[in-house]
Write a protein that binds this DNA or RNA. Structure first.
Lengths: 141, 141
DNA sequence: TTCCATGCAAACGTTTTGCATTTCG
DNA sequence: CGAAATGCAAAACGTTTGCATGGAA
């Protein structure tokens, strides 16, 4: 049903420090906390580093994620990238799709309670994806 | 950056009770708590109701979601469907991609705490997506 | 009789891949 | 030098859509 490995358990791979890879990292940082998709990174690089190919952007993003240089989240059929590789919560607006960080660690008691109910599933309770409606979309209704 | 509406605010639409739509609902129920993707539903229907087209499966699934007859979740670039439309938490294994239900309501104090930190974002705290590693994949390491 | 739903095929947006070439280390 | 990264184009993948036809209400 699902053969794709979402996160490999393979050992870290030796990578190269190329102009393109640096440009991609730079672009993700420039786009800041907007949690850009690959297409957004590519669009940004059209100005910053023209001539760079989309395939390279994808490969560089993958490499940067593997090296834990940046983070990645899947939202509604699209991969979104994150300046910070440090685990943290995210909110996803189910109306406009915007992604934001949520800084509020779960209380230890809640963590225990959830992990207890998880039935052998090891929860990443420092990186939870919350859904909902953002302030802007809420105001627009 | 993201124009697609993840959840419409439009009023419910009048729909028709067709053989195909009933078959799709039946298939989702037959597949139970495995949280099947559209392709899984289609594969199941190849036996149950041959001749049914993939496009119809997609349209039926969409309709059933709109009518809140079934649930939908987006996991790593693929839509997964849920027998139950009642909001509940999910766990997503980041190794094998399997999806399961997690029955453990967040404590009221935690709900308050999170909603407070959300900065105007209205959180759906009864339908949270937790990531992690399932028991099977954990054992396989 | 009215439209909503269907089947088919083609299109779509996102992501991956094959291959010849370049470039880092 | 050798391994890894690049550009390009083509393909793969999940999903949506246009259109002529069929069927529920």
């Amino acid at each position: 049903m699902m053969a794709t490995v979402l996160q490999s358990t393979a050992p870290p791979k030796r990578t190269r420090n190329t102009v393109q890879r640096r440009a991609v990292l730079c672009a993700v940082r420039a786009l800041g906390d907007s949690h850009p998709a690959a297409a957004d990174v590519f669009a940004h690089l059209r100005e910053t580093a023209p001539g760079l190919s989309l395939a390279t952007v994808y490969r560089a993003l993958d490499a940067l994620v593997s090296q834990k240089e940046i983070g990645r989240d899947f939202v509604a059929n699209i991969a979104r990238y994150d300046v910070s590789a440090t685990p943290h919560h995210h909110t996803v607006c189910r109306v406009c799709g915007s992604v934001s960080d949520l800084n509020a660690p779960l209380p230890a008691a809640t963590v225990r309670r959830l992990q207890n109910a998880a039935n052998g599933f090891q929860l990443d309770l420092d990186a939870v994806q919350f859904s909902g409606v953002c302030a802007t979309c809420r105001a627009a209704i």
